[in-house]
Design a protein around this nucleic acid. Sequence first.
RNA 1: GGAGAGGUGACCGAGUGGUCGAAGGUGCUCGCCUGGAAAGUGAGUGUGCCCCAAAAGGGUACCGGGGGUUCGAAUCCCUUCCUCUCCGCCA
Length: 426
Amino acid sequence: MLEIHLIRSNFEAAVSGLQKRGIPQAEPLLQKVLDTDQQRRDLQLKLDKTLEEGNIKSKQIGMLMQEGRKDEAQSLKTETSTLKLQSKGLQDELQDLISKLKSQLYDIPNIPHIQVPAGTEETDNQVTEEWGTKPQLTDNANSPHWDLIKKYDIIDFDLGSKITGAGFPIYKGAGAKLQRALISFFLDEAEQAGYHEIQPPIVINEDSGLATGQLPDKEGQMYGIVDSNFYLIPTAEVPITNIYRDSMLRAQDLPVKMVGYTPCFRREAGSWGADVRGLNRLHQFDKVEIVQIQTPENSYVALQEMCDHVKALLQKLELPYRILNLCGGDLGFTSAQTFDFEVFAGAQQKWLEVSSVSNFETYQSNRLKLRYKKDGKSVLLHTLNGSALALPRIVAALLENNQTPKGIKLPPVLVPYTGFEQITNK
RNA sequence: GGAGAGGUGACCGAGUGGUCGAAGGUGCUCGCCUGGAAAGUGAGUGUGCCCCAAAAGGGUACCGGGGGUUCGAAUCCCUUCCUCUCCGCCA
């Protein structure tokens, strides 16, 4: 949720920022919010005056009663009764206005950072970096990963369908070990980079969903739990960031750097076709997520630092990757700037997104009420998060790029974790 | 799942209808004391919203959340969430 005072004091910048996302009617949209806000403030003033009057009279009644002047107290009582009715009405009106203002604000996405390129097409995304060379696969070892997992019997989609449904694979043997190895590797790397390890619940309540923005609009993305008002998390970002909901930090607590591994659950309603084959898109997948809470001054340095961390992971895994600075139109609703990381999968001949690193500035912390004390004043903090990394597409690229006629060679960095160098037929 | 107790400021803890945004303590900040520190000592120390160009100042709301009774609620009632104790069940 945008901060209302930012729109108030920086109207032009807000308008042009939203236009960068391809929202042509940005100005009337923001003007409408300002109008609602003005109404709210007028009403607040009126209500406070009425309450003040009532409070003064109530105190007088108390004093009169103590002095035994009952008649005078009685006549004041009738006055306070009418004041009470008035303030009750005003209060209801104010509540309505506040909800209206909130829902108007919920409809407005974050304002993109100055360095976000304008545009609405995927082609408007800026490739800021490309690393590694695309693998040259030979004719006798050029299978997409969905064939490889069957050949070596390491991931079983059919069996997963039996237990749950499509998109819930079962990892077996070397496949299961590879999952465990990647998770441990990612967690260890994050810990070395100064992130504090967290193991959060993977089920969240409504308040948490609201605070990080999955609710109220995107419940379609999450699996709900029947008769509990709980949801399965779509990403560890939700429980981990919510640790700091309703918090006032001290300067010396900052920055907060946390990492957590969780399974993630996404409905992915409405997506199908070639893009979602095999491991490319799942309903349940594993991900290690890094989260930072930063002062506004440092948040963009931190964003860069998080990108460097992800780069290092991919380099150690020897996977060719590229980084995209997402354009306004491709930017997530709550993000001010996002860098997407894609690895190249050799057999599919496709770039697959494996990480998304974002700075939300105060968009999340405003709903979270996450602040810190700076020179005696409370200041909203900036929140950032990124995948480091999501497993399935990493596995897809590892399998495809490292295949040989005899087996799949793992990058050396994983060998201490897996205990084997190659995936072969038993 | 059954029975009971309880949720008060950064923390501990008092407060059972009026002058309570809340005693007292701890912590923290600033000062005095000290060669320096500790001890001692003085003062200050919640958050949101609104008025005000800003500061100063003022108003209002907040004692787990929501609703109610009352002229007036931390205090009474309802509801919900959470914590603890005992019993049951159990990885």
